[in-house]
Amino acid sequence: MLKLNHLAMLEAMSLSRSLAETAQRLHISPSALSHQLKDLESLLDAPVYKRKTKPLLLSDKGEVIAKLAHQVLPSIRETQSLLRTTVSPTSLRIGARCHYCFDWLFACLSPLQKRYPELEIQLPQANDFEPLPKLVSQDLDIVLSSEMVSMQGLQCDALFDFEMRVLLSSHHPLASFETLNLEQLKDYAIFCFPVDWADIDLFVQMQAHGIQAKQWIKTNSTQSILQRVAASEGIACLPQWNITRFQDLGLVTSRAIDLRGGSEELKSGLWKTLYAVHRQAANTGSIVEQVKQLLSNAEPYFER
């Protein structure tokens, strides 16, 4: 008897150029895919794809099953999604790929807790720098990302733009400037998070302009970065919402980074977009859509 995972496998195979790509679409290992193929072909007593062909080609029986999969799986997924949204949610699990603390999240999402008194909101873990596998495995409901995510089965929606600013101690020599250019930062140690260099925005910008910083110091904690910058041990580049509280205490100050290179047509500052990433099965009426709507209007909470 055909199973749902057989249909999902043939659907993915029909959209892929190789078995490796199929495994990626299904978020399973190549060995797990091989096991599923063996199970289905044993059931059919016939191959479902043509061996030794590039790109991947389905057999006649494989084509029949793939056609069935494309017909029935969308309806099954929609029904599953509707069934999930008829029950009041009891938990909302949020992850983050952008490595910044989100003190404003609880206040921003407070209307949800009023609407659903039993709802437990779990915020991003400080050291969980790659939460997407947990989103795919349904251990998270939504992931915040400062980069666009393109993965099979996931939807990525822009929430709002935010500025990355240079964080300085209040008596730092660079604090006398209204804005800073990248060249001015090269003589200082720069604190950053322990992620891939390609995910460190200031590093990417400096590399693109052929500028080397004196030293990069990776640390897990936003709080540690703020405290060490306040102690004049170095500088950092963080979103405005991380800086406001310390800045109000007079411990640090911040400056915009001017990347225009003399052009008045470009927008001043290092700007990013915050995205909400979630599984496509979450439909318009779900709590995920309510979360996205609240987060899209989060800016007033940054100052709290």
Rank of each mutant, 00 (worst) to 15 (best):
K3N: 14
Q71E: 15
G269I: 11
L43C: 01
V166S: 09
W216K: 01
S91N: 12
E233S: 07
F177L: 14
R51L: 12
A126G: 00
L266K: 13
L266C: 01
C156H: 11
T273H: 10
L37E: 12
N5H: 11
S34W: 05
Q125V: 05
V252C: 14
E264C: 01
Q205T: 03
A298L: 11
P111Y: 02
F102K: 04
N181E: 14
I211V: 13
D196E: 14
L2R: 07
S150V: 13
T22R: 06
P124V: 01
F193M: 14
G261F: 11
L44W: 12
T79H: 03
D60Y: 04
E163T: 05
A66I: 06
R165T: 05
A213M: 11
P74Y: 09
P55S: 11
I235L: 15
S31L: 10
T86K: 02
R51N: 10
Q125A: 13
I200M: 09
L92Q: 08
N127K: 14
A175D: 03
V204P: 01
A276W: 00
Y301Q: 15
L168S: 11
C98I: 02
E147S: 12
A189L: 06
H278E: 06
P74M: 06
P124N: 05
I225E: 02
E265A: 04
L33K: 01
A198M: 08
A208P: 02
E147V: 10
P131R: 10
P117I: 00
P133A: 13
R260G: 07
F203A: 15
G62L: 06
Q227W: 01
R25F: 01
P173T: 13
M13T: 00
P131I: 12
A66Y: 07
V291A: 11
A96V: 12
V277G: 02
T244I: 15
L57M: 12
Q24P: 00
R51C: 05
E265I: 08
C108Q: 06
L33D: 10
K3L: 12
Y275P: 10
P194K: 06
E303I: 05
V136C: 03
G210A: 15
A282K: 02
V204G: 01
D258F: 07
I76H: 01
H209Y: 05
D139T: 03
L274K: 12
V64H: 05
P55Y: 10
V195C: 08
D60R: 15
E130N: 15
T244S: 06
E233W: 10
W271I: 06
L7Y: 10
A298F: 15
W271G: 02
D187N: 14
G62Q: 05
P194G: 08
S81W: 07
N297Q: 14
S286I: 06
Q24K: 15
A213I: 04
L15W: 06
Q215T: 14
G95H: 03
V143M: 08
L26G: 01
I235R: 08
P173E: 14
A231M: 04
E21T: 02
R84D: 09
R165P: 00
